[in-house]
């Protein structure tokens, strides 16, 4: 298991990075202050807390995934620490997998802390733990599988700044891609339709993981939907990681 030490080192590097704590601080600040914001409303106070809280967690979660995901791979290349690692008996794909695993671990822990912050804030408000929120967080974590995979994918071949822009773009596109289906209906030309159709199924569909809405209004969510979304998240990220491996395998370090 050569992936393990790399994952561990990645994790260690990430949690010793100050930027992570800065983001965490702002996320928690936003969650806690949502309590104050909820005082301004009439009626459903905990809805506001949940709304702001879930949004803060997803926003900062994505930000963390992108910033840390990109810096941790690019930095190895830029600072040439990767020379040392790759000259050891380790395959390049093992290196990428280790990075990916380490990043996911870091992000999982950060998400956990933020979710805990939200649950506690709600607990002080209503006196009970709103555990159904965990489902939304779980699916959001699946979304981060894909975002992180993209962060790694892009940083195997471009600069950190471009990688972060691309990954952010993927995040935005992933949440809007269902519009392509609507567009397909309105475009008359066959090729236009075909293009929309292809793009729709090629691009990640991050709306699959978005059940914030159902969670806030306590609607029932089918287990089938959840399992399918998880399956989608895992298989799609495998695709991206494999693509990254293909590119990384041929990359010249000079």
């Amino acid at each position: 298991m050569k992936v393990y030490p790399i994952a561990l080192n990645t994790f260690r590097e990430a949690i010793r990075d100050r930027i992570l704590y800065l983001l965490l601080f702002f996320a928690l600040l936003m969650i806690f202050t949502s309590r104050i914001a909820s005082l301004l409303t009439v009626g459903e106070e905990s809805k506001i807390i949940i709304d702001v809280g879930l949004s803060a967690i997803s926003f900062f979660g994505v930000l963390m995934a992108i910033l840390i995901g990109i810096t941790l791979v690019s930095r190895e290349i830029e600072k040439r620490t990767i020379y040392n690692i790759l000259s050891k008996p380790i395959r390049r794909y093992q290196f990428l997998l280790g990075k990916y695993a380490g990043l996911l671990l870091t992000i999982l822990i950060m998400d956990f802390i933020m979710t805990l912050g939200l649950l506690l804030t709600l607990y002080f408000k209503s006196g009970r733990f709103e555990l159904h929120l965990l489902l939304a967080m779980g699916l959001f974590f699946c979304e981060l599988f894909i975002i992180t995979a993209f962060a790694i994918f892009f940083s195997t071949f471009t600069t950190p700044i471009l990688s972060s822009i691309f990954t952010l773009a993927i995040y935005a596109v992933g949440h809007l891609s269902w519009n392509l289906l609507a567009l397909k209906e309105r475009i008359a030309s066959f090729w236009g339709k075909a293009l929309c159709f292809m793009l729709y199924y090629l691009l990640p569909n991050l709306e699959n993981f978005n059940i914030k809405n159902e969670v806030v209004h306590q609607l029932t969510i089918g287990w089938k939907t959840v399992l399918l979304a998880i399956g989608y998240g895992i298989s799609y990220s495998v695709v991206i990681i494999l693509l990254a491996t293909l590119i990384f395998q041929r990359r010249d370090f000079v």
């Binding site: 080192n9 260690r12 590097e13 010793r16 990075d17 600072k79 040439r80 620490t81 020379y83 040392n84 000259s87």
Partner: peptide
Amino acid sequence: VGFLPEEPYFYHHL
């Protein structure tokens, strides 16, 4: 094989 690159950079956090 053991290898020491030119002007090596290291993980500052370790």
